[in-house]
Design a protein around this nucleic acid. Sequence first.
DNA 1: TTGCGTGCAAAGGTTTTGCATGGCA
DNA 2: TGCCATGCAAAACCTTTGCACGCAA
Lengths: 141, 141
Amino acid sequence: MKNSTGYKTKQRSEVLGVLEKSNGEHITAKQVHERLEKEGSTIGSATVYRQLEKLVEEGLVRRYSLGPGEAACYSYAADESCDHDHCFHCVCTKCGKLYHVECDHLAEIAGHLASEHGFTVDPSRTVFYGICESCSKKSGE
Amino acid sequence: MKNSTGYKTKQRSEVLGVLEKSNGEHITAKQVHERLEKEGSTIGSATVYRQLEKLVEEGLVRRYSLGPGEAACYSYAADESCDHDHCFHCVCTKCGKLYHVECDHLAEIAGHLASEHGFTVDPSRTVFYGICESCSKKSGE
DNA sequence: TTGCGTGCAAAGGTTTTGCATGGCA
DNA sequence: TGCCATGCAAAACCTTTGCACGCAA
């Protein structure tokens, strides 16, 4: 669905490989680059960004922006550990942790928004912000 | 609820004034700065960022990050046109437009996440990303 | 008067871009 | 071979920070 301009290069496989091995973990472009260099790759950071952009466009990789000034996070989209049709993400604004929430209740929302409001939600990009359980216990403030 | 360290300065009023006048529109810190300069203000961009940060912490202003590398967007939170207990926000990733969706169905989700998953959603910060109706019609791709 | 807020400028970090070279098809 | 992808470096961009001064309380 977007393979018109795609060469199968070593670097492409390397970037995708890191995401696959991350197993649903959300990592930044910088981390992708660092891990590849640790593995002996000589890939350039610009190439990492360019490949990530392509992979996101192809739908193989998801991109999350947690905040302004913060680095964007990427995760492998075809990861079974995170079904993006029934999995939403919650970010705690206190501790910054990211939680995966798998619940049909949430998937229902997407359908509701589409049918009632004409808005096609992209679950992979949508993030709920709030306070997680442990943080709300800690701070009675 | 966070007024312990707050001076009432001219710049604070100016920044807040721009957001109020924007009437629900989401604008970047840069735009806030530009509008103030056009009004004859001599406010510095650093002050705009510092005030926006404070206003967000106080809950008077909301911050959205539309994408990595993109500038963060701000909007006035106390806007009456938007009941934040039953109103969620949808941003179209194609045209960048922000839609207000008022629906009890969505408010229910917040309750569900809190009771079942222990996550207290902050509706004012949470944004749904996806494709709006007009954009999905345009691009059949 | 005290201490926060401000302004200017510089730094910080992430992401993008230009150009010549190398590799896939 | 043709064209895309790569690598390096520099640029662009948004945002934060340091420091001295001004202003609110």
